[in-house]
Design a protein around this nucleic acid. Structure first.
Lengths: 246, 246
DNA sequence: AAATAATGTGTTTAAATTACACATTAAATT
DNA sequence: AATTTAATGTGTAATTTAAACACATTATTT
C-alpha cells in the first residue's frame, strides 16, 4: 500500500484491481487524488495525460491520479503522484475542488480531490518515465476518461483566475526567461494578445524581476535579456497589490 | 444510515459513536461534509455554530457537519445538513476546499469537504430547531473545535473574494431590501466603508435591481426605497462584466 | 414647530488602463 | 561584406475607471 514514500519513483502506482479491492460492492467511499499537470511548450499551455487502463475508457486519456492511503496527507498524495510520474519534487501544487458524483468511477464510489500543478516542461523533458504519458494542448482536448474533462475545465478556469492575482507563470518557465516568454505564458493561459510595452511597464513596476545580465541563446533573431523571478522581493511588496495587480 | 432524505428534519444526525463505528481502528478513510453557514444581522456577518459533542472539545463551538453516506452526492449531503439544521431549502451553497490532515479528527481519519452557504437570518429566525445552535459574529471567533477555525477562515476568505465578482450579497438579505442594507452587507463582508453615492451609482449602472415602489417600514428615520434583485437581468448582462465588476 | 437622522442626487479630480510608432540589435541571407 | 529580416527595447497621449466630495429632502422623534 502506498505510503508517503517519495524515494522510489515507479513503485506504488495503484491499478484498477487495487481500486476495486478497496471499494468493491460495499458501503464505503474510496478517496483518490487527481492531478492536472500543466506545462508550457511551443507557446501553448499543455496538460500531461495518460492512457486509461480501464476497458470502459479504452483509448481515452485521463489525468494522473491514485488512491489516497489512510495514513497519507492529501497534499502528500498529490506530491507523490507528481514525483512518480514526472520525477519532479517541489512543484507548485494547488487544490482545486473535490468531485464526488455517485457514478463517476465504474469501480464504485470514489471521491476524488483534484489538484493542479505547474511544471517546467524543459526541466521535465528528459525524465519521462512512462511512454503512455503525453503532453496535450489544453485547447485541443474534447473528451477524457471518467469526469476528467470536467476536472480539467474546472482546474483551467481556476488557473486563469489565479494567474491574474498570483505569480504562477514563473513556475511554467525555466529559471532564466525573457520577457517575451513570460508574456507568451500569460497570452496562452488567458487566450489574449497583450501590448508588449504595457506588459513590460507593468512587470518592471512590480519590481520583482531581476536582470541577470544575460541574453537568450540560439534564437533566430535579436536575443532578449534574461530575467529571474525574485520571490523574496515579491513577498515583501505584495501587500500593496492585494486586489490591484498581484 | 442517512440517505438523501430531506423530509424529516431531525432524524439522521450522526453522532460521534456513529463516526467511530465508521472509522475505528481501521485502514480506512471516512468522508464528511462541514457547512459554514453565514448569515447577516445587526450589520454583522454571522456564522451558525453548534456546541461540540466531543469531550475533547467540550465547551467549544464547531461547524455543522455530518458523514457522507456512500450513496449520497456531496452537494446533497451539504443540502441535507442545511435542511436538518435550519429548515431551509434552496440555499446558496458553494464548495470551498477539502481538509484531510491526518490528526484533524480524534475518532480517526476523517477527510471533510467544506462548503459555505449564505442564508437570510430573518427568514430562518423562527425555525431554530436546536438550542445548542447559535449565531456568532465571524470577527469574534478565536477558536473552534477540530480544525474548524481554519475551515472558517478559508471559507470567509473565499466569500470575500467571491462577493466581489458574483451577486452573492442578495442571498443574505430578504427579497425586499434597501440600498443601505445592501451596502451594509458589502461593508460587513469586506470590512470596509464605502461611499454611498458611488455605491448607488455602481449598482444602478449594473441595472439588475428593480424598484418595487415600496418603502421601508418601521425604521426610526426617513425610510428608503425597497428593491428586488432580478437574477434574469443579471444573467443577461453579466458577460460584459466578467473581470470588471461582477 | 423644531430637531434629528437618515435618504437621494452630480460633478470634479485623480488614478489606472489602453492605444500607439520607431530606432536598435543580432541573426540570416544574398 | 552588405543587405534583409525579425525580433527587442522604449515614452507619451488619450481614454476609461475609480475616488472624493456637499447639500437639499423626507419622515420620525422630541
Amino acid at each position: 500500500m502506498a505510503k508517503t514514500n517519495h524515494t522510489n519513483q515507479q513503485t506504488n502506482i495503484k491499478t484498477l484491481s487495487t481500486i476495486q479491492t478497496e471499494v468493491e460492492s460495499i458501503n464505503r467511499i474510496a478517496l483518490s487524488v487527481d492531478c492536472v499537470i500543466f506545462g508550457f511548450d511551443e507557446n501553448k499551455l499543455k496538460v500531461l495525460l495518460i492512457r486509461s487502463d480501464l476497458k470502459k475508457f479504452q483509448g481515452k486519456w485521463s489525468l494522473l491520479g491514485d488512491l489516497v492511503d489512510p495514513k497519507e496527507e492529501l497534499d502528500s498524495a498529490a506530491n507523490r503522484i507528481l514525483k512518480q510520474r514526472t520525477g519532479l519534487d517541489d512543484v507548485y501544487l494547488e487544490q482545486v475542488k473535490t468531485f464526488g458524483c455517485l457514478d463517476r468511477h465504474p469501480a464504485g464510489r470514489v471521491v476524488t480531490v483534484a489538484y493542479y500543478s505547474l511544471i517546467n516542461i524543459q526541466h521535465h523533458k528528459l525524465k519521462i518515465l512512462d511512454n503512455e504519458l503525453h503532453w496535450h494542448d489544453v485547447n485541443d482536448i474534447t473528451e477524457l476518461a471518467f469526469d476528467h474533462k470536467q476536472i480539467l475545465d474546472c482546474s483551467f478556469e481556476q488557473l486563469q483566475r489565479r494567474v491574474q492575482e498570483h505569480p504562477l507563470a514563473f513556475s511554467l518557465l525555466p529559471k532564466k526567461f525573457s520577457l517575451r516568454e513570460l508574456q507568451n505564458v500569460y497570452e496562452a493561459i488567458l487566450d489574449t494578445k497583450m501590448d508588449r510595452r504595457n506588459f513590460r511597464k507593468k512587470f518592471f513596476a512590480m519590481d520583482f524581476l531581476v536582470d541577470i545580465d544575460q541574453m537568450e541563446q540560439d534564437v533566430p533573431h535579436r536575443p532578449g535579456k534574461l530575467y529571474n523571478f525574485n520571490y523574496n522581493k515579491y513577498e515583501k511588496k505584495k501587500k500593496k497589490w492585494v486586489g490591484i495587480d498581484f
